[in-house]
Design a protein around this nucleic acid. Structure first.
Lengths: 205, 205, 205, 205
DNA sequence: GATGAATGAGATTTCATTCAT
DNA sequence: AATGAATGAAATCTCATTCAT
């Protein structure tokens, strides 16, 4: 018979708390979410949250951000240093953008919380995100420079070029996070390809 | 001596309520702002908000969004049909981006509320904003097409070109609204010019 | 031109206040009626009530009870000492019950207030009403005794007989005041006649 | 020692809330009773009422009426079909009136609320009460008819006779509920007997 | 005579948190 | 490990009343 150990049971409850809190904070905001909404959704008593997170609502918010964010970053890092060097340029750009998409949209709730509650709580995660993005821009710029050396694209300000590519994509991404659609929402990958093709046409040597 | 009529005094109070509510909602979020914080800031009694907005917190939120947004739109419309046709391309683009900046950043508080509380309240204003932006993209695309006919820029997908320009700029704008800086924040106009120059260099015939 | 003097205007406003307050207190109860409900219904400003009744809500309640009650009593007294002596018994009883009905139902709002708020305010009017009713019972008892002497009805405990008659009628009256119908509500005068006939049939010598 | 389980304790608190609310609503009216008055009287915190009645004041009002009324009706139903058939007429009538008295006066607070707040809340209970009373009249009429057949009372309109008896008694009852005494209030049972004797004297064959 | 802006006490209600069981 | 009864501070809202105009 499937016996669940006490420890497993405990971890399961803790995880359900974090998951549910994340959903609700993303949907209704931190201040708009009563602790009860969380505990009721996992069918437990009022006090359970304080058992796992003695610091209460604030603590579960902090923990979920930290854990979710770390988890995201770990995922990204695994994907990150793959060999795009040897891919054809178009494919390489698609891979890069695909990873960015994953970074932002694979945990949409996390991003929503980060965006919404950032200036309320002055979240370190938001700052880390900013840093990550700047680094990414630079690394893409470097990548483009190498491709230029290979004669695949023209000479230009590669940092701006990197920003240009990312910006167009981020526009798309923001829509999903913030809920304000500023870009037509057709098939996502189709749009990505069209965008890359357009950009490459401008970068031709 | 500056005599203020009773009616003027009343309007002033109402306006102060709206203004203060906007500030606080933008800063601490709707749920994070007690009604008291508003009335105390304008040095009035607890009940005054309900005198002007019988529907309470909800109503003042709705009214301030509606009035601020309408005011924004009115301002934009006035600026809108100016003669960019006859300006040099670079200047014309700078004017266009300048207007977009005004649309989003002249009332930063309004934008913050729109972005933050959109999925909480399903705000019509957010939807209108989306529509406005899509229309703007199309009108810029048309403008670029006309410039292409004049031989000033190369042939390309003008809708994408318009999006490309706007996206880069919006990236900048988002940073200010959401508080997550994904782009270095140097002098704003300098960045705008750099960006336009970079873009134009890619659009050369 | 129909000029209304200032005094008439003032009296009119005062009367409208009293009338409206009576309606609303009867309908929604004293505590359930905001002062604003009164002033708004007569299309005047918030403060007007305090102009005519400096004691505020309490005073208008006291005044309206006093004036309405006195008015009622004055009306009743006029009707009261008519010559029922010479009427046929049946007609005399109908006249008596008719008067009682007027006493209670001609100003239904007043009665509602008296019944509803009596133990909240320990109203003197309620007590006077009790006294009036007891006196009435005795005077009817006397009347019946005289009719017995004339041989029109049998000997019996006339006080109880008077109560019996009144009770049946009051049952009817209570229904209207309290809003709990305990008696079928056909045509009122028809019911009154039926009731009298039934009673007389029991009183036959 | 008398150990009280947690559940019992909870039920006790809930019951105390209902009981106290009933007392206070009857005494000071629904609108005249602050929620605090209830919680303070049972020596509990402000929030406790909302723990048991999430709908607040309105809900506790609704629940207490429903539960009290159902309880009353259940009690009445138990008493109802006893063997009055075989009692002497006078005793039978006294039993009947005694039950009516119990119906109305055993839970005086409930009746006060029903009478006072009926038109404020359009209470179903008040309507049920009306229906119950009408049925009662008919069942007494039937009873009287059977006694007539046995030759114990004269022929007459039995429905009216039943109403007559009840009315006299209800007069008495109303006084207690509404607080306006329209009938001398001596010893209750003495009055009841006198009344029955008087009525029977008129009903003699 | 009349207004309605303003007040502030107090009413209703919510909710994070504690703790005995 | 879990519960949910209980708390009380704080939030939202109502309303009788005042008073400058």
């Amino acid at each position: 018979m499937a016996q669940i150990s006490r420890k497993e049971q405990a971890t399961a409850t803790r995880d359900k708390l974090l998951e549910t809190a994340k959903n609700l904070f993303a949907e209704m905001g931190y201040h708009g979410t009563p602790v009860r909404a969380i505990t009721r959704q996992i069918q437990k008593g009022d006090g359970i949250l304080y058992h796992y997170f003695p610091g209460g609502k604030q603590e579960i918010m902090a923990v979920l951000l930290k854990e979710s964010f770390e988890h995201r970053v770990r995922e990204i890092k695994q994907l990150t240093n793959e060999t795009i060097e040897n891919l054809p340029l178009r494919d390489a750009l698609l891979v890069i953008l695909g990873k960015i998409r994953e970074l932002f949209l694979n945990d949409l709730d996390l991003m929503r919380i980060l965006f919404r509650e950032n200036d309320l709580f002055d979240l370190v995660e938001a700052k880390q995100l900013s840093v990550m993005m700047s680094e990414r821009v630079e690394s893409i710029a470097e990548f483009l420079r190498r491709r230029h050396v290979r004669g695949e694209i023209r000479a230009m300000n590669f940092t701006f070029a990197a920003r240009q590519l990312l910006s167009m994509w981020m526009q798309y991404t923001y829509s999903a996070i913030v809920g304000i659609k500023m870009v037509p929402e057709p098939d996502m990958t189709a749009y990505m390809e069209e965008m890359v093709d357009f950009t490459l046409s401008l970068w031709q040597p």
